[in-house]
């Protein structure tokens, strides 16, 4: 919670994203410190997911600056928007994998192959080492016995834990979560949240888009309220949930609690 003196892992300044005439992000300022758990909350359509997808360049921003671990991924020079070459973006992505709302496991690969795909194909690490590590990670998320299953044979909660294992196998600096429990049956949510909590406790840096307010409150170091294409209010969970300042946040929180 206390801001470390070191440079933030992610620095975002004036980030904009438009689709045609529609401006989805209108100048976002966001810092994520190493080891910090950041939650992005807010009404749907407010830009949370787009913000998350711009951080790792799944969506190309329209303007602004992103610096990840000291490396500038994009910036503006006068009126011109530049971004780093594709290779640099790829390397950055590999260090901040994303966990998706709909899991997006590779349907034609087993659980183990899903987890080893990145380390083998992208990082080109030796197979024996990668597989041993993958099995250890699967054990950590409680799925060691599912290694040879296909995604279609798993429950939603299991799929999401495989997706987390796939992200972990990249030895990431940061994991992005895009509504990781929104597509799950209620009884499966807890298992996934426990897995995320364990990561946070180990000091992994997390940026989470979520509607699980209770979870955000317990886990977050910082909560950002995203609405209308920018970050409207930021603070500790207690501050955000107990003493909201803006009208928008107040009405959002009361609508959530209602």
């Amino acid at each position: 919670m206390s801001a470390p003196a070191a440079r933030p892992l992610v620095e975002i300044r004036g980030l904009r994203k438009s689709y045609g005439q529609t401006e989805v992000l209108a100048g976002v300022e966001l810092m994520v410190a190493k080891g910090e758990v950041t939650f992005l909350i807010g009404p749907s359509g407010g830009g949370k997911s787009t913000l998350l997808r711009c951080i790792n360049f799944l969506e190309t921003p329209s303007g602004g600056e992103i610096i990840f671990d000291g490396e500038r991924l994009c910036h503006e020079d006068g009126n011109l928007f530049h971004h780093a070459p594709e290779r640099v973006l790829r390397e950055a992505r590999a260090r901040m994998p994303m966990v998706f709302q709909h899991f997006n496991l590779f349907a034609h690969r087993t659980v183990l192959q899903n987890v080893t795909e990145g380390p083998l194909v992208v990082q080109k690490r030796p197979r024996a080492e990668v597989e041993a590590e993958a099995l250890a990670i699967l054990a950590r998320v409680g799925l060691a016995d599912r290694a040879s299953f296909y995604p279609a044979q798993l429950s939603g909660g299991q799929k999401q834990r495989v997706a987390i294992a796939r992200a972990l196998a990249m030895r990431p600096s940061l994991i992005l979560f895009d509504e990781p429990t929104s597509a799950l049956d209620p009884e499966l949510v807890a298992g996934v949240l426990d897995t995320i909590r364990a990561l946070a406790e180990e000091g992994m840096t997390l940026v989470v888009v979520s509607h699980e307010m209770k979870f955000a409150r317990h886990l977050a170091d910082k909560v950002h309220f995203v609405a209308g294409g920018h970050i409207e209010e930021s603070g500790t969970p207690d501050r955000i949930f107990d003493a909201p300042e803006s009208e928008r946040l107040k009405s959002f929180i009361s609508s959530i609690l209602a």
Binding site: A94, P97, H102, F103, N104, A167, M170
Partner: peptide
Amino acid sequence: GQRDAGLSIGMS
């Protein structure tokens, strides 16, 4: 989502 997943672990 399959494409997103591949890109998100750094594939070209």
